[in-house]
């Protein structure tokens, strides 16, 4: 951690003696660790549940399994007739494509809203916000009819194409807020030099917006990965199921369920999104930290 905020700590803390500083640091870590335990507990519980015998999952008071077994992982991985290998592949395809689509299409729309002038801009912006407000439960069936009309049902297209068409206003709105925070002088200077809007977008705004683009990438990946309603409605063959859909199919309140398999695969399903988060949060941190940029 040698980036700019480190300076802040030094500057702010230089009235303290080294001992005081150490005490503050220890206290901070203690506080953060305590909070972390609350955050971690579900994962530990799930991990334990995935290793213990099925009839102990809900009846044992201890978090430590009486015996450890990898059975649930083997059973879960090969479960649901198709196997989780396929589900993971499907989830990866859908999530990666969604990230590309969202980052590209939403940043373009956001650039238009934040940096360009055109007629009816506020009207379109209001329309975009409106699409955020209607509960999806009631547009589901018309949308299904539409996608079926297009011949897209039972393909990944209903899950991916909307992302390339910036259908999620959340990300547009998010990027608009960040783009508007960038100094206007940048565009104006570039425009004087004869830069086209495209070059301004691609060469100036995008590189300066790494934190928000990384944020959008992280959210898109995780939310697409975690989404089950879209896949539930649009995918109707087991071999096109995503991980989340697979997980929900492990348990059924009317018959025999496989809870061990559920928790084992739940643990595995967290690995990709956790790694994705760890990787992209670096971009978040490497942000612009604009010491040199004048406002």
């Amino acid at each position: 951690m040698t980036d700019a905020p480190a300076k802040l700590t030094v500057v702010g803390a230089n009235r303290l003696t080294p001992t005081q500083r150490r005490i503050v640091s220890v206290l901070m870590h203690a506080a953060l660790l305590t909070v972390s335990v609350f955050m971690l507990y579900p994962l530990l519980w799930m991990l334990a549940a995935s290793f213990r015998p099925e009839n102990e999952i809900f009846t044992s008071a201890s978090i430590i399994p009486s015996e450890w077994s990898l059975d649930a992982y083997v059973r879960g991985w090969n479960g649901l007739r198709t196997g989780f290998g396929t589900f993971f592949t499907n989830s990866f395809i859908v999530s990666i494509l969604s990230v590309c689509g969202n980052v590209l299409a939403c940043s373009m729309a956001a650039f238009a809203f934040a940096r360009l002038n055109f007629r009816f801009r506020s009207f379109w912006f209001a329309m975009m916000l409106m699409t955020l407000m209607l509960p999806y439960q009631v547009t589901l069936i018309p949308q299904y009819v539409l996608f079926r009309q297009l011949g897209w049902v039972n393909t990944f297209l209903p899950l991916v194409v909307p992302k390339f068409l910036a259908a999620d206003g959340f990300f547009i709105f998010l990027m608009v807020q960040f783009f508007r925070g960038l100094p206007k002088e940048l565009d104006e200077a570039a425009q004087m030099d004869g830069c086209s809007p495209w070059r301004i977008y691609w060469k100036i705004i995008m590189p300066l917006s790494m934190p928000v683009l990384a944020t959008a990438a992280i959210f898109t990946f995780i939310w697409t990965w975690d989404d089950f309603f879209g896949p539930l409605i649009y995918l109707s063959e087991m071999k096109s199921y995503t991980v989340m859909l697979g997980l929900r199919t492990f348990t059924d309140s009317t018959g025999e369920s496989d809870y061990g398999g559920l928790f084992a695969m739940s643990v595995l399903s967290l690995v990709p999104i956790f790694l994705f988060f760890l990787f992209f949060q670096r971009l978040l941190i490497e942000g612009i930290a604009t010491t040199g940029m004048k406002r």
């Binding site: 238009a112 002038n117 379109w124 009631v138 547009t139 018309p142 068409l165 259908a167």
Partner: peptide, 25 residues
């Protein structure tokens, strides 16, 4: 034009995929 060109993907999505189901509902 620049504004609308940048907005094009969103406009296609809005008219093609989003507004129909909204009006339907």
């Amino acid at each position: 034009a620049p504004g609308y060109l940048f907005l094009l993907p969103w406009l296609i999505g809005f008219f093609g995929l989003t507004i129909g189901p909204i009006i339907s509902s």
